[in-house]
Design a protein around this nucleic acid. Structure first.
Lengths: 98, 98
DNA sequence: TGACAAAATAACAAAATTGTTATATAATAG
DNA sequence: CTATTATATAACAATTTTGTTATTTTGTCA
């Protein structure tokens, strides 16, 4: 029997808010693009209704790789990786200097 | 005597359009985020009215590093690099999946 | 044309990211 | 509480990107 219940965003937010670095970044008006990216990735996955493991499978990487990308402390993003994710889920990656 | 004359966008576009890969990417409706990033970087530099060398100096890297980032064939972007550029020029890097 | 400035290309070591495995922590259902 | 699922953390080799130097091509202007 397949479980499709996921943690809600609210739960996730609550959990992440216990992380001092995450809180700090959220408080900054010009918020950090790395944390912002982690959020975007999580939101994408949630929209798809997938667990990290399922999401990871579509990208042919293990779950741990997705956990790392969604971590608020991760700063190692490459456009290659983000583009690969975007196209796997029929999205377009947009990059801007605003 | 200091020259501040730069190639215009039109000139640049004309030049790049001779590049088959560039043309191909531009023709695709869901245009490539790598080429798009190269454009964004060039536009940012143009707005600042800087040569590659001057732009590079503010980032503490040689001109060649900027030429590479502005090349339509470059696919090695990291958010670290893009963020460094954004903040050096008081911009915010925006990343989205659309 | 020649001299000079701007930009592009190439090559390589150093640094950073990715994929991977193992393991730990957290949440949920029973 | 226990079993199970979901997510997080750590460590390391393989791959990729960065910084760098050298060189080349392109454009501008006298």
């Amino acid at each position: 029997m397949k479980k499709i219940k996921l943690q809600s965003f609210e739960e996730w937010e609550k959990k992440k808010l216990k992380d001092p670095e995450f809180v700090k970044a959220c408080e900054e008006p010009d918020d950090d693009p790395f944390i912002e990216t982690a959020w975007q990735l999580l939101k994408l996955r949630e929209k798809m209704g997938l667990t990290q493991k399922e999401f990871a499978k579509k990208l042919h990487v293990p779950q741990e790789a997705i956990a790392r990308l969604e971590s608020p402390r991760y700063r190692g993003y490459s456009l290659q990786t983000l583009h690969k994710i975007a196209s796997t889920f029929d999205k377009k990656l947009q990059i801007r200097f605003i």
